[in-house]
Amino acid sequence: MESPDTFTLLPLHLNPQSKAISSTGTTNNALATELAALNTLHRSLLSVDTPTGTPPPPVPVNPKRSAQINKLRESGNNEFRKNNYANAIRMYSLAIEMALGRPAWEPSGLVREEVSGLLSNRAQANMALQNWAEGAVDAEASVEMKKVGNAKGWWRRGKCLLEMGRYEEADAWVKQALEFEATEQDLVQLKEEIEKKKDR
């Protein structure tokens, strides 16, 4: 970094209509990526409805989007109960998209929580359709978002791997899961099941 009093003047150009910033000089990759990110952020910043035009502090969260996500999740759950698994997957996917579309300055912990639950539900719907591969990926993503207190997510990927006949992977996965959720009865059972299959 330069000293606090100096900076490198970059050859930037402002598009008068779109207000997009671009570089007029020789563009390197880093600058181009950064400017693209800046322009995206600028667009999302324009939709902020605070009087000063600055992003509001992370909490409290704008309840509108949370309500929409909840609604989509509920309808997904309803479809699931009616055994319309394909529809349920669609609803969950929409809800996930909605949750990931939150403005970047909103709390990331909240996004993790929401997305993890939704992915876990989608994994369940995929499993009901015997889409073990998709279920496994969804459950893995769900666990990645939230490792502790997500026994269902752990269990679902283990189950999917087991169903696909990937016993070694399933075994390793469930062992890892038990480090987080040692008391979960379902996981212990799944482990026994996997070991039985593996020994054969």
Binding site: P55, P57, P58, L100, A104, W105, E106, S108, V115
Partner: peptide, 24 residues
């Protein structure tokens, strides 16, 4: 007072979305 709170959430959110996209 809040710009760094926002910035930190932004950093984490970007990281989170990258991880998720990687897995998906």
């Amino acid at each position: 007072q809040t710009i760094f709170q926002s910035a930190s959430e932004m950093a984490q959110n970007t990281h989170l979305r990258e991880r998720l996209a990687e897995i998906q």
